[in-house]
Nucleic acid binder design. Structure first.
Lengths: 216, 216
DNA sequence: TATAAAGTTTAGCCAAGGCTAAACTTAAAT
DNA sequence: ATTTAAGTTTAGCCTTGGCTAAACTTTATA
């Protein structure tokens, strides 16, 4: 069993990867100081979980990636489970799962997966890695790069910022919803979408985190 | 938020209390060395969670007890929730709840309590403290001290040893079951019970942990 | 009541995982 | 091509929560 701190480092490197992740970037993502990151990355390198090139950055070894995917699997299964059973809102799920993911045994993980019927996506539409790290569904496109005047299906929304989740929810944007880009602002990348007979303006930073699929 | 270690110390002192708990007793319950206990107990005393009389023992202050009860509440709610949703066996519940109890937010705690309809007992029959530490149902008697030839209702079985839980389960003994003491062994305190038309012999150490109620 | 045994505490050590301040690299800008 | 700025690493410190070994109390026994 790895410590909570180690699991958090691996998960962050995975999220910020797959290319080399800088010390500062990792530090701000984990909310610690860069010096702490350097020290921990050295330990993770010793442990064979991370490859580190001094002054360049860090990336996961295949062993590290497997462990990161296991944490992500637990996180996303928990989100799905809490949503299904307790009906928690999409904006509350992330924070709760973030805590619980480190305390989930293999047995409970698979009991939950069975209960849920081995789902492939969590309530934000994010793909749930399989028990051995298999990850499908990474083919969804950012809304920011999608064509205009075509019917698109929302596949994934971001999970880590509950104010963004709830803003999207309030504007009718969540996995499964159909929308169409009507126009875009060439200066700031903002997008005007028609969703459910309303026009919603989405900033480019949010649009790059909403993933869609074209066919369907 | 208290650390996991602190929550575990408070919970153990609560379980072993309410009278002063010795260093060694606490150490073996927590699976650490006595010297570690002394050190931590001093810290807890500084924090106002524990009263400590050197060479005598430790007990909870009212603030410490409130915190201990909060941990116990989380533990027992989780056991009930996991039993209800996933159908985990009584023998698996304790170990899972033990881990998760430290990662449960107030919000999730109350969402679970609401979902369950604010239950008063967990699947082992142990009373669940209320959100402010209210604890009912402490009137159940140990089976070891109960009269013979009377119909008794099993109220509580121990939770921390899964082999005991599953042994009891396999012998038809769990909360709600009726039984009758037919004879007892005056030397070792063992008890012969009729339960469900079978005779089951229960050792005195287990019998002191099974709690019953006389009036039904 | 003196002494041995049992239990408790103190002292000092260690690893994990943070931090700050200072040194060092690399990249950018004159 | 230098200098500066930005990013990274090193060095050294701190707290938490373990440990062992030695000292100290208390309790039980002779």
């Amino acid at each position: 069993m790895y410590s909570i701190a180690i699991e958090d480092y691996l998960k962050s490197i995975w999220k910020l990867g797959p290319k080399d992740v800088g010390t500062q970037e990792l530090a701000s993502h984990l909310d610690v100081k860069p010096a702490s990151v350097t020290k921990m990355v050295l330990r993770l390198t010793e442990m064979g979980l991370v490859d580190h090139t001094p002054y360049k950055g860090a990336s996961l070894t295949s062993e590290g990636e497997l462990e990161a995917l296991s944490v992500v699997r637990r996180h996303r299964l928990l989100e799905t489970f809490l949503s299904q059973t307790l009906g928690l809102g999409r904006d509350q799920l992330h924070a709760e799962a973030e805590r619980l993911e480190h305390a989930l045994s293999k047995e409970l993980e698979s009991a939950i997966a069975d209960y849920l019927g081995n789902p492939e996506r969590d309530p934000h539409g994010h793909p749930i890695p399989g028990p051995n790290g298999e990850l499908f569904g990474e083919t969804d496109l950012p809304l920011s790069d999608s064509p205009m005047n075509e019917i698109l299906t929302v596949m994934q929304i971001p999970d880590y910022d509950s104010s963004v989740s709830s803003w999207l929810e309030n504007n009718g944007i969540f996995p499964g919803v159909k929308l169409e880009i009507k126009s875009r602002d060439d200066f700031d990348g903002g997008i005007n979408c028609e969703v459910n007979n309303h026009i919603v303006r989405i900033t480019s930073s949010i649009a790059s985190l909403v993933k869609i699929s074209k066919e369907d």
